[in-house]
């Protein structure tokens, strides 16, 4: 197992460096001098030169690249070009909100999707199955901001069960949870729909296998057959989809944060885009990618736990 974990960890390093390189290139190929963009057309040449020195733009590309990679690998993304504050500090302040939302949506998706998917698979072509199929197709067609607006209209404006403003006090857990409900449903809807579909088809496939027939023939109780033999073998595709979907959740959290006016990475990124805060954008892209690489790593490790063959490979 240790070798397996080590292997996967090491495999993630080149990906991370490649991501960093790509981010560096993307930001560099942008037309226009960042210093000029920040200071505006009226800036004196001296002011621009000073800012360029402060941002390190006067050094050679290689020097910039090297210092960018080395500091990023130890978690230092420099300071925001606009606020002058450390990027890690700015991100760190709102990261809990985004992680709250993403995790809650993921759990929402699993808690809804897995049982419904199993139920639908067990009653193939029954009422529940047809309903699950139609609803999941509808669910995964919802853009997050549309489901968010519909939920706001219904539960905050019409029935007034939930607040319109989503920014919560992190230390007040009740408030934090209460304000998390609508954003979670809005963001988790697509995930729940996907997990339902994948669970259904994976269960259908797994329940059709010979080992299920063997287990039944041996007299293993049906409930145990479904939950132990069926689900365990169906869980690889489910884990894959959850892993893939965390990336989409992170992306869509931007929209959720706008609709529900929540603080978070999304808010920062939109702000940075509007103000052309290149260092902030650079840092944010790396942080997003880092989160996704971590999720992929966890997914890979879970494969190893679920399926002994993966480890042996």
């Amino acid at each position: 197992m240790t070798g397996f974990v080590l292997r996967r960890l090491l495999a993630a390093v080149p990906t991370l460096i490649a991501v960093l390189t790509l981010v560096f290139i993307i930001v560099r190929i942008v037309p226009g001098d960042p210093a000029l963009v920040i200071l505006g057309d009226q800036a004196t040449p001296e002011a621009i030169a000073a800012l360029r020195t402060r941002l390190g733009l006067d050094r050679s590309l290689w020097a910039q690249y090297f210092s960018f990679i080395t500091s990023a690998l130890v978690g230092d993304f420099g300071v925001s070009m606009v606020t002058g504050r450390s990027i890690m500090a700015e991100v760190g302040a709102v990261l809990p909100h985004t992680i709250d939302l993403t995790l809650a949506s993921m759990i929402f998706g699993i808690v809804i999707g897995v049982p419904v998917g199993i139920w639908a698979a067990l009653h193939r072509n029954g009422v529940v199955d047809v309903a699950a199929r139609v609803l999941s197709l509808l669910g995964l067609s919802f853009p997050v901001f549309v489901s968010g607006i519909f939920l706001l209209l219904a539960f905050s404006l019409h029935w007034r069960w939930f607040p319109v403003i989503g920014s919560a006090d992190l230390s007040d857990y009740g408030d934090r949870l209460h304000k998390l409900v609508l954003p979670t449903v809005a963001l988790g809807l697509v995930m729940a729909a996907y997990i339902t579909r994948v669970t259904r088809s994976a269960m259908l496939q797994s329940l059709g296998e010979d080992y299920i027939r063997t287990a039944r023939a041996k007299g293993v109780p049906w409930r145990r057959v479904v939950w132990v033999h069926g689900l365990r073998n169906a869980s690889i595709p489910i884990v894959t989809v959850v892993g893939l979907y965390v990336g989409i959740l992170l992306g869509n959290s931007v929209l959720t944060e706008i609709v529900f006016n929540r603080p978070g990475l999304g808010k920062i990124i939109v702000g940075a885009l509007n103000q052309r805060d290149y260092t902030m954008l650079q840092g944010l892209m790396v942080i997003y990618c880092f989160l996704i690489v971590v999720v992929n790593l966890i997914t890979d490790l879970l494969y190893g736990v679920i399926d002994p063959r993966v480890k042996a490979e």
Partner: peptide, 14 residues
């Protein structure tokens, strides 16, 4: 894989 490790909305956004 590197391209895939950007959330597509974020990549589009940037």
């Amino acid at each position: 894989d590197v391209l895939l490790s950007f959330p597509s909305l974020i990549l589009g956004l940037i």
